[in-house]
């Protein structure tokens, strides 16, 4: 464990808490992409299958359970409890355009052709593009609530911090996982446009609006 990975995991946990807070306090999931949240739940489900079989540490097991529980909790809030506030008209990104190629790629490019490894690879590839429906939705509505922009900033920062963690582990532990690094870089690059808007607007107290 190193400081980059720890802060990355905390940023990830913060993002999930911010989203749950936003939905619970505003009693609305307006501006949040249900499709991205469905893909995040799929990411955690396919990545943490070893939760039962492979104990690594109490921290690892606890965080995995929190991530799985909160992702399904978010789906419950969005599609059941506050379903009336779900903005399906603007959440129109075709998930199959992401899930199918990612599934195909995880069969072609992986470290080991075993079910658990292919599912892990699938979850890594899927996570790198899972935010696209959310970013697409913001581009369609042209704006995002401030707390939603904080959620996205924390979520984007988590994988950026993981890149620093992989640099650290490469030099100090000789650990290098090409699949995780490439997918992590793609994932972080997808946030660049949002990071620019967030830093130039939200940090100046303005609302996050996209140039028309």
């Amino acid at each position: 464990m190193n400081v980059f990975r720890l802060t990355g995991d905390i940023a990830h946990l913060l993002a999930i808490i911010l989203l749950l807070m936003k939905i619970w306090k505003t009693r609305s999931c307006a501006g949040v992409s249900g499709k991205s949240q469905m893909m995040f739940a799929l990411v955690f489900t396919t990545r943490y299958l070893d939760l039962i079989t492979n104990f690594i540490s109490l921290y690892n097991t606890t965080m995995k359970m929190i991530f799985i529980a909160s992702s399904y909790g978010t789906l419950y809030l969005m599609f059941l409890k506050f379903r009336a506030t779900y903005d399906s008209n603007h959440d129109t990104f075709r998930m199959e355009f992401l899930v199918v190629p990612v599934a195909g790629l995880s069969f072609l490019v992986n470290h080991d052709f075993s079910p658990l490894e292919i599912l892990w690879t699938f979850s890594i590839y899927l996570e790198s593009v899972a935010i696209l429906p959310q970013l697409f939705m913001i581009s369609k509505t042209g704006e995002a609530e401030t707390i939603t922009s904080h959620y996205l900033f924390a979520l984007g920062s988590y994988r950026a911090l993981y890149i620093l963690n992989w640099v650290y582990r490469f030099y100090f532990e000789g650990f290098f996982d090409l699949i995780a690094v490439v997918a992590g870089c793609v994932q972080t690059v997808l946030y660049c446009d949002f990071f620019y808007l967030y830093i130039t607007k939200v940090w100046k107290g303005k609302k996050l609006t996209l140039p028309a």
Partner: peptide
């Protein structure tokens, strides 16, 4: 070298 260590990362 590429090594897929046990998945100790989240």
């Amino acid at each position: 070298e590429i090594c897929s260590m046990p998945k100790d990362e989240l």
